[in-house]
Amino acid sequence: MISPIIFIILSIVIIIAAFLSLYFRDLLACVVSFSVLSLVLTVIYFHLDAPDVAIAEAGIGAALTTCIFVIAVKLTRRREE
């Protein structure tokens, strides 16, 4: 079982990553911070005794979504006005 202190720290990291993915003007940096969010969320799922959801989050959230977003950024604009 995860200790509450580590849990709170991971939750704060998730909130910071979510805020940064909205804050950045560089869309590639947004995608990277979104990927960090998914990765930390994987750790939280694993420690909440949900390894099935953790594997799905690691495969889809951290890998495939990032790949598709990078392709989309490459096809459009990198900077947000």
Partner: peptide, 28 residues
């Protein structure tokens, strides 16, 4: 491994398929 051991350990069809598809992303 995730697909074939889905009924024994955590994993299953969707998770294993997504992990293998991230292998395709690596190949790209």
């Amino acid at each position: 491994y995730l697909v074939l051991h889905g009924h024994i350990s955590p994993g299953g069809g969707f998770q294993g398929g997504a992990v293998m598809a991230s292998g395709t992303a690596l190949l790209l």
